[in-house]
C-alpha cells in the first residue's frame, strides 16, 4: 500500500477540522499577500516553505522563526520561495503566528501492524526521541482513556506549573487526543499523523506543525 504525506497546510486543515487546536495560519504565494495576512495573524510570526513533496522543512532550512516586522516578513517570504527546487512541485509559503511556550509535547496517530490505529502522546522537543517518554492507546479512545494516557507519561512534573507558566490543562490535551482518535475513525485513509510540536501555551496545547500521511491520492 503506497502512502504519501500531505503539505503542512493540507495537514493542518485536516487536523483542525477534526478539532485539534492549531496556531493561526494561512498560505500565501508572494510577499504582499504575507504582509496583508500579518494584519490578522499578528507578529511575531513564522514562515515556512510548504508543498506536498516537502516533509522535512527544518533539515533544508525552509523555516523562518521570530519574524517581527513587515520588512522581515517580505524578506523571509522571498528567500523561501527562492529556495524551492523543481522537484518540490507546486509550493507556497505558510505564515503563522509564533506561539510562545516553554513546554513541547508530541502527539499523533500511528498504524500498528498488530493493533491497528493508535493515538500517541509524548514529551516533545529536540530530546523527544532520546527521552522516549511516550504512551499509546488504541483508536477509538474515550476522554477517560485520554486522561489516563496523559497520566502515563513519566514527566508529570512537566505538566504542573512550570517556570511561570500555568499547569497544563489536562482536559484540553485530552480533547486534542480524542480529536486525533476521531480523525482516525472518520478517515480510514489516514496512516499516521504527527503533531510535532504541540506547544503548551498558557497551559493549553496548540499544534504549530502537522504532518498527515494518507493512502488517498497517493502516486501509484
Amino acid at each position: 500500500m503506497s502512502t504519501h504525506t500531505l503539505s503542512e497546510a493540507a495537514s493542518r486543515a485536516i487536523v483542525a477540522a477534526a478539532g485539534v487546536p492549531v496556531s493561526a495560519y494561512t498560505t500565501v504565494t508572494d510577499a504582499d499577500a504575507a504582509v496583508a495576512a500579518a494584519a490578522d495573524i499578528g507578529y511575531p510570526m513564522v514562515a515556512k516553505l510548504c508543498g506536498d513533496a516537502i516533509a522535512h522543512k527544518s533539515e533544508r532550512g525552509l523555516v523562518r522563526l521570530g519574524i517581527g516586522s513587515d520588512d522581515e516578513l517580505r524578506r523571509s517570504v522571498d528567500e523561501l520561495l527562492a529556495l524551492a527546487r523543481p522537484e518540490d512541485g507546486e509550493v507556497d509559503v505558510l505564515v503563522s503566528t509564533m506561539v510562545a511556550g516553554k513546554r513541547e509535547l508530541i502527539a499523533g496517530l500511528v498504524r500498528d501492524p498488530q493493533f491497528g490505529m493508535a493515538v500517541m502522546l509524548g514529551v516533545g522537543g529536540i530530546l523527544a526521541e532520546a527521552i522516549a517518554d511516550v504512551a499509546f492507546r488504541l483508536v477509538p479512545i474515550t476522554r477517560i482513556d485520554a486522561l489516563e494516557l496523559l497520566d502515563d507519561l513519566d514527566s508529570q512534573s512537566l505538566l504542573g506549573e512550570f517556570r511561570g507558566e500555568p499547569a497544563v490543562d489536562r482536559g484540553a490535551v485530552a480533547a486534542t487526543l480524542v480529536a486525533l482518535s476521531d480523525l482516525a475513525e472518520s478517515d480510514p485513509n489516514v496512516v499516521s499523523v504527527d503533531l510535532n510540536p504541540l506547544i503548551i501555551a498558557d497551559g493549553r496545547p496548540i499544534a504549530v506543525d502537522a504532518l498527515v500521511e494518507t493512502t488517498q491520492g497517493a502516486p501509484s
Binding site: 500498528d112 501492524p113 498488530q114 493493533f115 493508535a118 511516550v134 504512551a135 499509546f136 492507546r137 488504541l138 479512545i141 482513556d145 489516563e148 494516557l149 502515563d152
Partner: peptide
C-alpha cells in the same frame, strides 16, 4: 508468533 511493539502493547493493556 511475532511479538509486537512494547509501548503499544503497554497502552493496549492499560486501555
Amino acid at each position: 508468533a511475532l511479538a509486537s511493539d512494547d509501548a503499544i502493547f503497554d497502552g493496549m493493556a492499560r486501555q
